[in-house]
């Protein structure tokens, strides 16, 4: 029962979606939209599991003093600062004791980690309690900002957006821009390869790369542009189609196996 019921659920929902596809009626559409909403909502619950995993792995690193354990503090601080900022917001013009509040929450976090890591639990637990009292005291007495547990105003908190704009975005954009270097080193790697397949790949890549290069002699760029256009429109189209058919059949076959309960590897029984 424990093992079979999930597969029965898979079959029922899978078969329903297959039938739903042929029914254009509003009521079928209605259920379809419901199910898609559900998938999203379950995803958020799963995210809580994810954050918990990140937290435990980081604390575990600190506890066992694994290599580079100190950096786990950076992860945890980033995580908690962002959560605190995402759930609080400024009411008036002044910040009041907001920064003290954030800092006391951070020390609370630090003390809690210490409690689970060190042997002297009583001391650290007491300190945690103290910083909790400070944080709560500020939260209840200071009116210049609020705990936005009920409105989405936390998302427009200035510091929250600042962190998003000046920490997240630059790192993200820089990681993305590293691709420029990596594509160069990848091209070099392809250049050294000594077999017919790699050579074909390289020649096609060079033709397409140089299609707009104006420094080539003998009107070569024009031929390059024409050839690369032809490459993109003809062999590329053919190969893409062959791959798409293959992938499509792979997806169809795998989905069918999943619905029929032939493929069970994803439930840990393969």
């Amino acid at each position: 029962m424990k093992r079979q019921l999930p597969f029965l659920l898979v079959f029922l929902f899978g078969a329903f979606m297959v039938f739903q596809y042929y029914v254009p009626h509003e009521s079928s559409e209605f259920v379809y939209e419901f199910l898609l909403d559900w998938v999203m909502i379950i995803g958020i619950f799963a995210l809580a599991l994810g954050i918990w995993s990140l937290y435990t792995v980081s604390v575990d690193k600190i506890r066992h003093k694994k290599e580079n354990w100190a950096y786990s503090y950076v992860t945890l601080i980033g995580l908690f600062i962002m959560v605190v900022l995402g759930f609080t917001y400024k009411v008036g013009d002044s910040w009041g004791f907001y920064s003290v509040f954030v800092i006391s929450l951070m020390t609370l976090l630090g003390f809690l980690i210490q409690t689970s890591v060190s042997k002297d639990k009583g001391l650290w637990l007491g300190l945690s309690g103290l910083s909790l009292v400070v944080a709560l005291g500020i939260a209840f007495t200071d009116d210049s900002w609020g705990i936005a547990f009920m409105t989405s105003e936390g998302l427009s908190n200035t510091m929250f957006t600042n962190f998003a704009d000046f920490v997240l975005t630059p790192i993200l954009a820089t990681m993305f821009s590293l691709l420029a270097f990596f594509i160069a080193s990848a091209a070099y790697r392809a250049f050294r390869a000594r077999n017919i397949l790699a050579t074909l790949l390289l020649i096609a890549a060079i033709i397409v790369m140089l299609r707009f290069n104006p420094y080539m002699p003998f009107g070569l760029p024009e031929y390059m542009a024409k050839t690369s256009n032809w490459l993109m429109n003809v062999p590329n189209l053919a190969a893409q189609r062959a791959i798409v058919i293959g992938i499509g059949l792979g997806i169809v076959a795998t989905s069918l196996k999943v619905i029929l309960g032939i493929e069970r590897g994803y439930m840990g029984k393969g």
Binding site: A186, R189, L201, I247, L249, G250, I251, A253
Partner: peptide
């Protein structure tokens, strides 16, 4: 992901192209 296969082919020792991934299991 068809657009990513070329990069894997260049940088990896072995690459399963498209459907081969599904067949692999």
């Amino acid at each position: 992901e068809i657009a990513q296969i070329p990069f894997f082919i260049v940088a990896c020792d072995y690459t399963l192209i498209g459907e081969e991934l599904y067949a692999a299991s």
